[in-house]
């Protein structure tokens, strides 16, 4: 490990970066790749945050306008899914950084199918609910 030419911290001081499960393996990749990985993780974190914000907005709207309980349940699920998505960003950052350091190919995005599936299910549930309500009014 001593002959790493691209070490950003210089060659004298020991590598104190954490976690060791990431920085203890392989060698430093091009810094731009690490930065891109970091920005990807941040984008996922912001996606989760947007879900939380949407859930809170729906909750507030449901309390103000006395909406049916389905809206409130959707808001609850959105909040929890946002928290889960933020946590998954952390783990996918770690997987991708390990793959970068070991020169392996990058893992597939694990959260993406879940996010897409969740949005599709949400759309179907809300559409079915809207049709149900309309049919009840007629």
């Amino acid at each position: 490990m001593s002959e790493r030419p691209e070490s950003p911290t210089g060659d004298a001081e020991p590598d104190a970066r954490r976690p060791r499960s990431v920085y203890g393996v392989g060698s430093d990749p091009d810094v731009r790749f690490s930065l891109a990985n970091e920005r990807t993780a941040l984008a996922w974190v912001r996606t989760g945050l947007a879900l939380v914000a949407g859930g809170v907005a729906l909750t507030t709207l449901a309390a103000l306008a006395d909406l049916p309980w389905v809206i409130d349940a959707v808001a609850l699920v959105a909040c929890l899914a946002g928290g889960l998505l933020a946590a998954s960003a952390l783990f996918s950052w770690r997987r991708a950084e390990r793959a970068l350091r070991e020169g392996r190919s990058l893992p597939a995005p694990a959260a993406l199918p879940w996010l897409v599936g969740g949005v599709v299910v949400l759309a179907l549930v809300l559409a079915a609910y809207a049709v149900f309500e309309l049919a009840g009014d007629l």
Binding site: G48, V52, L58, A75, C79, L80, G82, G83, A86, A87
Partner: peptide, 14 residues
Amino acid sequence: LIIATAVIGGVLAL
């Protein structure tokens, strides 16, 4: 921080 916000938002919805 975001998970704490999400938990508070979930409790509020409940």
